[in-house]
C-alpha cells in the first residue's frame, strides 16, 4: 500500500542508532550481546531506509536456509548485524539488529551438531558395512 507521506523525515532512526552505540560499548566491555526487534519500534516510511542507509553494508553476508531463507548481513559497523527472517514464500517475518561478534543463529547449534555426529557415524557405519 503506498504511503501518502513519502520523503518525510521523522527522526525516529536517531534513537535506534544511539541504542546501537550503547550496545556496541556493552559488547566490548562485557561481551554482552543485544538484539533489537525492528518490528517493535515506531517507524515512519523513511525512517527504516534512513536507518539502513546510516548503517551501510559491511564485509559479511550469509543466508540461512531453515524454515525459509534468512539473510544475515554485517553492516558497515563491525559487530552490528542485520537479520531478516523470511518464510518459504520469501515473505519477511521479522527483522532484527543483533550486536554480537557472531550472530547466535550463524553458529551451529549443539543439538544439531549432535544429530550430525550421529548421522555421520551412521553413514560411516553403513559405508563400512556396505
Amino acid at each position: 500500500m503506498p504511503s501518502t507521506d513519502s520523503g518525510a523525515e521523522h527522526g525516529n532512526a536517531l534513537p535506534i542508532l544511539n541504542e546501537i552505540r550503547h550496545a556496541l560499548a556493552r559488547l566490548l566491555e562485557s561481551g554482552e550481546t543485544s538484539v533489537i526487534d525492528l518490528g517493535a519500534l515506531p517507524m515512519g516510511p523513511q525512517d527504516e531506509a534512513e536507518l539502513l542507509a546510516a548503517l551501510g553494508e559491511g564485509e559479511v553476508e550469509a543466508t540461512i536456509n531453515a524454515g525459509g531463507p534468512s539473510s544475515v548481513r554485517e553492516t558497515a559497523f563491525h559487530g552490528v548485524w542485520l537479520l531478516t527472517h523470511r518464510n518459504e514464500a520469501g515473505e519477511t517475518l521479522a527483522r532484527f539488529i543483533e550486536i554480537a561478534f557472531v550472530p547466535e543463529l550463524l553458529m551451529s547449534q549443539a543439538e544439531d551438531v549432535a544429530d550430525s555426529a550421529a548421522a555421520l557415524a551412521k553413514k560411516l557405519g553403513q559405508a563400512q558395512n556396505g
Binding site: A40, G67, H85
Partner: peptide, 22 residues
C-alpha cells in the same frame, strides 16, 4: 526442522508476541 530453524521460529514467535528478543 533443525535446532537452528527452531530458534528462528522462536525468534519470530517472540517478535510476533511482541516479547523482547531476550
Amino acid at each position: 526442522i533443525s535446532r537452528r530453524g527452531f530458534l528462528k521460529f522462536c525468534a519470530t514467535t517472540a517478535s510476533l508476541m511482541a516479547l523482547p528478543p531476550s
